[in-house]
Write a protein that binds this DNA or RNA. Sequence first.
DNA 1: TTTTAATTTTAGATTTGTCTAAATTTAATT
DNA 2: AATTAAATTTAGACAAATCTAAAATTAAAA
Lengths: 226, 226
Amino acid sequence: MKYSASKENYLKAIFHLQQEQGLVTTNALAAALRTRPASVTDMLKKLKEQKLLIYERYKGFKLNNEGRKAAVQVIRKHRLWEYFLVKKLQFGWEEVHEIAEELEHISSRALIDRLDAFLGHPATDPHGDPIPDSQGRLLVRRQVALADWPVNKAMQVSGIASQTTEMLEVLQHNHIRLGTRLEIKKKFPFDDSLEVKVRNRPPVTLSARVAKNVWVTDDEPPAERR
Amino acid sequence: MKYSASKENYLKAIFHLQQEQGLVTTNALAAALRTRPASVTDMLKKLKEQKLLIYERYKGFKLNNEGRKAAVQVIRKHRLWEYFLVKKLQFGWEEVHEIAEELEHISSRALIDRLDAFLGHPATDPHGDPIPDSQGRLLVRRQVALADWPVNKAMQVSGIASQTTEMLEVLQHNHIRLGTRLEIKKKFPFDDSLEVKVRNRPPVTLSARVAKNVWVTDDEPPAERR
DNA sequence: TTTTAATTTTAGATTTGTCTAAATTTAATT
DNA sequence: AATTAAATTTAGACAAATCTAAAATTAAAA
């Protein structure tokens, strides 16, 4: 099955949206794709005809099994390319998204499998998001906002939600980046700020704003795939 | 300047055709692109409006300076990707063309410059064709068919025109590949076959058919760019 | 130099993906 | 429950790239 770049973008966006909500709405998808609701309806009709999603007029929609498989393949390509761009071509992890948006539509299956091998079958992309394996199995790590993590329980940074320069500046200043292991030492209910500690460093304070935008996971990520 | 994938394909094809003939014809371009003459005319009109070529109705056409620059950038991308596929991803040199046809349309300039650096600024692609540098300068090697090379003058294989499996089989059998240095020992006017000699090997005979499809160049390629 | 053939262009249609504006359906309020 | 508002879909249009069939131009042959 080969889909157009546009269709692949729709599949990917629907996949991400339905992770959070069960059913996806036309408006939400239009916003995610920066397009018009009418255009979304047009495309939904085609995707439904191709039996990639379950869709009821005026109600909402979601990918079926076929659609999910296709979406995961696109995500796999995107994240492998991002990894390549950062690890091999020395791009900064904040500059690669746009380029990967183009590369993800290259169709050759052999290419992506060889790229995967060349990169050493990486488990996550440079933003900490898991890379689906060649069978389309996606490692699901129970990611949670740092703000919601319990006190005194080891964890590591698995992703950064908001990747503004300002945000990255704060993290860099506090020696926190992807994979950094840390613990929350104290929570301050007054302003929801946190005191966290990285090994061999003095404790630092993070604002609620920051804590909400840092994803963390267990110290040792389980190999659970689905 | 960003052009659509389709336009880039036209530019590239025109560039190659006008290397041989001065003016390109509608039919020749249609054949090269496996499309219809009417479609070619349609596109020519657009390329002319964008001031990428010189075109007179019913007469013929060729790229102007702007068009040539754009075409060379596409060729640069294509050949760098081919090099990457063969040298880094271990593809065979005969399988990479199709994939590079897609990759060559990725637009990021930063990507291609970093890829170039990552690969060590290679001078030629896996087929022996020169890779334009980042300023669009294309190394012009005086390539000539093996059939037309003088007797007893050292040379090296710089390219293979017809890359059928059968052709490659013959070459492999005679230990001839890209970069192989050899000399013609004798020409047989009867059937235009040749006796050639590779160093440290017994002489072998090549048919006229083969000799016409092997490009050769001087032993030491000059660094002449234009 | 006519006539015929080949090449090239135009006219009009089609597909994919998008849009605006209007109509329809669903949800929210008074 | 009736009315207003929001969300969604339809209708009709448009741009890009392609096509077929017919017309126009150029080249070749009788």
